[in-house]
Amino acid sequence: MVTQKEFGHLWELLSEIPDPEIPVINLVELGVIRHIEEKPDQDKIIVTITPTYTGCPAKKLFQDLILEKLASKGYHNVEIISQLFPVWSTDWLTDETKEKLLKEGISPPTIGDKIVQCPKCKSTDTKMVSAFGSTPCQSLYTCNICSEPFNYFKCY
C-alpha cells in the first residue's frame, strides 16, 4: 500500500473502489494505485496505476472503475498512466489487508508459498489441489485437518 500525504481526499475517494474479484479489499489496499496528482491549473487529475497480473481480466475494469468514481465527484478530466515499474508484488499487502482476506475465506500470500493457512480452522496443515484457481491470482487448496477447500492468494 502506498502512502502519499498529498491529495488525501482523492486517495480516500479511490479507497472506496472494491477489487472486482475480491470485493473485501479495495484498489488502494491492493497496491494498484501508485500515485495521484491533481493539477488545479489544468483542472486535471493524473492517476498512475500498475497491473497486478498481466492476464488479469480486471485490468481494463480497474481503469473504468477509477474514471467512474472520479467522475461521480465531478472530476472529468482524468488521465490514467499504467506503469510496470516498480513491479507489483503481494509484498505490498499490509497485515491488515491480509487479515481481511483470511476473514473472507481467502488464505493470504506467504513468502515462497511456504505456509498456507486454512481460513476456517486456521491450521497450516494444508495441501495444494491445483496451482491454478478461479482467478489468475489464486490457487486451490484443501485443509488436511478440517477438509475445508479454499482459495490461496498466490505470492507474486
Binding site: 497480473y53 498481466t54 488479469c56 481480466p57 491445483s130 491454478f132
Partner: peptide, 17 residues
C-alpha cells in the same frame, strides 16, 4: 476440471503478457 482451469489460466497469462 482442475486441468481445464490450469490450462485456461496459463492461456490468460500469455494473452496478458
Amino acid at each position: 476440471l482442475e486441468e481445464d482451469i490450469a490450462l485456461s489460466n496459463i492461456s490468460l497469462d500469455l494473452f496478458g503478457r
